[in-house]
């Protein structure tokens, strides 16, 4: 167990180090001063308590939530690449309930908004889940396709049924105060969604390690056939449940973004969190606590990237390259570790 933790931390440290090195080389190659850029990156992510709370942690919320969604699914052997679409489904459901229930008190409306987001995300995951279980269609393709449907459904909603009552711009009306998540730390932008993400991570950690369902989920993920034959586990049910819980958590990410930050639904709500989530999940070694750490790391990376643009004049495209290099580094290291372990036993 201790060895495992050490290995995980090792992977993370090596990935961060390798990424920093690759990043510095890329910056130098692009004609930017890596030291100035690194300084901007640090100030923009950890420079002050307010920066850390208002930018890094705020950015980490959707990354942690979608990262949890992806890691849970992957643990069950469900290749849910559809967190992006599930996030949008959750956001649409959340804003719909938030606008419809505008007269309700916050104590009822906020939970209703989050519940709607969960159900929206789960409903979005239901389609590929049933297609896999009933028709045997691999979920990698179907979840990706459902992403596009989700993104375009959100676009349709803000141009059509959910467009602001002025009917001018492609966005919804703004949520009333009672539908908004409270601020967690006064005089920062950090909202309750962060606490929610931490609670969910802790809950999932317990679920995975201590509960029967967690055991079944891991067994199915390790080998569905063995789980069915030797463990008498009804694998179909486990797969369906993992899919729905994963989709529900990704849906919460969308709902939290709406009710915690933007207070309205817009096109382009997500810059691809559902995809970055895969990197977050892998960097976190598919472990809920690891995902929290990885989510904060990616949040800091993105926050720092913004500061790099502002202070060091580094173009936005660069951060895309850095993120891609992190994903590649992590994948390579995770693979190397797996191969090494198999060879050693």
């Amino acid at each position: 167990m201790a060895k495992d933790v050490r290995a995980r931390v090792g992977v993370g440290v090596v990935a961060v180090g390798a990424t920093a090195l690759i990043g510095a080389v890329l910056l130098w190659w692009g004609g930017y001063d890596p030291q100035v850029a690194a300084g901007a990156m640090f100030r923009g992510s950890f420079g002050s308590w307010n920066t850390f709370a208002s930018i890094t942690l705020v950015r980490s919320v959707p990354l942690i939530l979608t990262g949890l969604a992806v890691s849970l699914a992957f643990r069950a052997g469900v290749w849910n690449i559809g967190a992006e679409g599930q996030l949008y489904a959750g956001a649409i459901a959340a804003v719909w309930v938030g606008l419809r229930g505008a007269t309700l008190p916050a104590l009822i409306l906020v939970p209703a908004v989050l519940m709607a987001a969960t159900l929206g995300g789960a409903a979005w995951a239901m389609v590929p889940a049933l297609m896999r279980l009933r028709l045997g269609i691999g979920e990698v393709i179907t979840t990706i396709l459902m992403n596009f449907v989700g993104i375009y459904l959100a676009a349709y909603m803000v141009h059509g049924p959910l467009q602001e009552s002025r009917g001018v711009f492609p966005q919804t009306d703004r949520l009333v105060e009672a539908a908004r998540l409270p601020i967690l730390v006064p005089s920062t932008r950090l909202h309750l969604g962060f606490a929610l993400a931490l609670l969910l991570a802790a809950g999932l950690a317990v679920l995975l390690r201590r509960s029967t369902f967690g055991f079944q989920l891991r067994a199915v993920g390790a080998s569905p056939e063995a789980a069915r034959v030797a463990g008498r586990i009804r694998t179909g049910r486990v797969v369906l449940a993992s899919f729905l819980v994963s989709g529900g958590i990704a849906g919460i990410a969308g709902g939290v973004e709406i009710s915690g930050l933007t207070y309205a639904l817009y096109e382009g709500l997500s810059p691809g969190w559902g995809y970055t989530a895969i990197a977050v999940a892998l960097l976190g070694a598919l472990d809920p606590i690891g995902v929290v750490v990885a989510g904060v790391f990616f949040g800091a990376l993105q926050a720092g990237a913004g500061a790099m643009q502002r202070e060091a004049g580094v173009p936005a495209a660069w951060v895309g390259v850095v993120e891609a290099s992190v994903i590649l580094t992590v994948l390579a290291l995770a693979r190397l570790r797996a191969v090494g372990r198999r060879g050693g036993s």
């Binding site: 930018i55 950015r59 932008r189 382009g268 709500l269 810059p271 913004g306 643009q309 502002r310 173009p315």
Partner: peptide, 22 residues
Amino acid sequence: VSHQQTRTPAEFDEAFLAYAAD
């Protein structure tokens, strides 16, 4: 002068705050 390309509504807030606070 300074320029930032932003992608999401959440980033819009962040960029405004960062520039204004600066």
